[in-house]
Design a protein around this nucleic acid. Structure first.
Length: 589
RNA sequence: GCGAGCGUAGCUCAGCCUGGUAGAGCGUCACCUUGCCAAGGUGAAUGUCGAGGGUUCGAAUCCCUUCGCUCGCUCCA
């Protein structure tokens, strides 16, 4: 767990974010609302930059990924197909004695004698508790043991000398209402819905229930066919989306890290099943060495693609200023994997409050599209002309081998979904036959990142304090945010050396105007020059441009040049105004 | 959801125990000053003391409720 020093760091960061306008609590004037955060002027710029860099890198800089922007509220069936309705709304109950929480349907079934109590009173103080309580004992156990548990319960309610009242017994069979560990009564099962619920249309009844999406991914699957057909993409290709998602988290914690409204950047990268790759290329390439596997090749199987995306994503983080050393790769153990996942790598960042997930890169097989195929009744298969052409040229034993492997994989999926065995067998056989005709459900690799936690990681990583002592022996702390220039909210500060010299001010404003259509520029003339540098250090502005007397020609050879100061080192150099834009452009990438 | 602690100016905090209508430092703003790293001077703004209720002649202070934050438990597809 985080040690005190790291909590102090977190407090400093939170305070800086508020003071400088990066992050505010939502609805603060009304006392705030738990789990919701707003981005102030600098935070909004930072977040835009991050999303834009992701979008450019994932879509515009590639031939094989296209974008999507889907709605937040979708057909409720989507969340049944995805499994969210089941896994996000488990009724839970708590042990009245230990507070331990159980999923109501997973409590071990028990039988025995239940001892009910209507309440208790303190024989010394006279204080009374009217809370009913009950303990279940296996048949044959002495009643004293039930009373002991009940006494402990009422002691928790503030009674010291417990005198139990209204004891009755009842025979109980196959009950899930009692804690198997101590026999204590559990609270009533309460729905624990992690999805935000709303109603579509003016009538708020159960038929009109809809959910705010708990992830952006499902929209991509739901629109897979449309995008595939209109984008003229062929497998392998991906669909990227950036957008809001909502989860009614039990405990929003750690500043913006776990929020109830948050933004995701997700890619669903669709690939051919390994059986199809083998049919086409004669073999499936699998990773032999760690690290980036290079330019994608036609013979890559899902493992190569998975490794490729893990490495691509790490490169992205490096490019925006999170070095590999700040990240941790965590390969989920087989028993941690979701049942449909073949492999999942979490990219973790060392936050001040602990090492936590920034992004997950999951190999999700063909589970998602298959689910939507089953629930919607619409085919999610693609037709692969090359596969159709290649298949007849295969050796018959190879054909039956591939076909059988594909059939078994489909059967495994269909059986797990609870399809009747006979129906599953029939469907799997049909799917296998279709493979030879060039039809299959694409598999998917999913790099899924949280924008807000990435912002927090960038802030935490950029935060630095430098202690120094001035000539008068006073200790000073310089706070700076060492953002990578590509994400920095403000790219360049422009300052006249002195405010009371109109020529300097006029020239500085002129320089600001010449730059502002190219970069986010901040102009400041208030206070000493050092103070203005310090203000920009806290905002994370990488460069400061100062207009001085030499700019005006005091030293003729320096006419129309400015001083550029670098944020992290404080180093200065002289650059001609005419070259400023190019100078900055090459350093802001 | 449970337990503990906390909530006073933009930020960090004092005052609360022992009720008598609010303070410091930093920051912000204006003017002056200032020839490159938070210099200085003068002046200014800012809080229904998280919110609501109660006790009291009187509440930042005592009591209750509620919201928010932190930590622990729980949860985390």
């Amino acid at each position: 767990m985080a040690d005190p020093k790291e909590n102090v760091l977190m407090e400093k960061l939170v305070s800086l974010c508020k003071r400088r306008g990066f992050i505010f609590q939502s609805s603060e004037i009304y006392g705030g609302i738990n789990g919701f955060w707003d981005y102030g002027p600098l935070g909004a710029e930072l977040k835009r930059n991050v999303k834009e860099l992701w979008w450019n890198r994932m879509t515009r800089m590639r031939d094989d990924v296209v974008g999507l922007e889907a709605t937040i509220i979708m057909h409720p069936q989507i969340w049944r197909a995805s499994g969210h309705v089941d896994t996000f709304s488990d009724p839970m109950c708590d042990c009245l004695l230990t507070r331990k929480r159980f999923r109501a349907d997973q409590v071990d079934v028990q039988s025995g004698i239940a001892y009910h109590f209507t309440g208790a009173r303190d024989s010394v103080s006279g204080k009374v508790s009217q809370d009913p309580f009950a303990v279940l004992l296996p048949a044959g156990k002495p009643p004293e043991s039930a009373r002991k548990t009940a006494v402990a319960f009422y002691q928790l309610r503030g009674l010291q000398n417990v005198e139990l009242s209204g004891e009755t017994t009842e025979k109980v069979e196959n009950s899930q209402r009692f804690n198997p560990e101590n026999g204590a009564l559990l609270t009533e099962p309460r729905p624990f819905n992690l999805m935000f619920k709303t109603y579509v249309g003016p009538v708020a009844d159960e038929e009109n229930v809809a959910f705010l999406r708990p992830e952006t991914a499902q929209a991509i699957f739901a629109q897979f066919k449309n995008v595939h057909e209109t984008s003229r993409q062929k497998l392998p290709f991906g669909i990227a989306q950036v957008g809001k998602a909502f989860r009614n988290e039990v405990t929003p914690r750690n500043y913006t890290f776990r929020s109830r409204e948050f933004e995701q950047m997700e890619l669903e990268f669709f690939i051919k099943p390994d059986e199809a790759v083998e049919a086409l290329c004669g073999q499936v390439a699998t990773p032999s060495t760690p690290g980036h596997p290079g330019t994608p090749q036609p013979d890559w199987g899902w493992q190569m693609w998975h490794q490729y995306w893990v490495e691509e994503r790490i490169r992205f983080y490096e490019s925006i200023g999170l070095p590999r050393t700040t990240l941790e790769e965590y390969w989920q153990k087989p028993d941690e994997l979701a049942h449909y996942a073949r492999a999942t790598v979490d990219l973790l960042f060392k936050f001040p409050f602990g090492t936590q997930e920034l992004e997950g890169i999951a190999a999700r097989s063909d589970f998602d599209l298959s689910q939507h195929q089953r629930f919607s009744g619409k085919s999610m298969t693609v037709f692969d002309e090359e596969l159709k052409a290649a298949w007849p040229k295969l050796d018959p034993t190879r054909q039956s081998d591939l076909s059988e492997r594909y059939r078994l994989a489909r059967l495994k999926y269909l059986s797990k979904t609870g399809e009747p065995a006979e129906k599953a067998e029939k469907q799997a056989a049909e799917d296998a036959a279709n493979l030879g005709k060039g039809y299959y459900v694409p598999h998917v690799i999913e790099p899924s990142a949280g924008v807000d936690r990435l912002i927090l990681a960038l802030l935490a990583h950029a935060f630095h304090e430098e202690e120094s002592t001035d000539e008068k022996g006073r200790k000073e702390t310089r706070t700076l945010l060492s953002f990578h220039p590509s994400v920095a909210p403000v790219k360049v500060g422009v300052f006249p050396l002195l405010k009371n010299k109109p020529e300097l001010v006029a020239k500085a404003r002129e320089v600001r105007e010449s730059l502002r259509s190219h970069f986010n520029v901040f102009y400041d003339e208030a206070g000493s020059i050092g103070r203005r540098y310090a203000r920009q250090d806290e905002a994370g502005t990488p460069f400061g441009v100062t207009i001085d007397f030499d700019t005006l020609g005091e030293r003729p050879e320096w006419k129309d040049t400015v001083t550029i100061r670098q944020r992290d080192s404080g180093a200065q150099e002289r650059v001609a105004i005419a070259e400023l834009r190019t100078w900055l452009e090459t350093r802001l990438r």
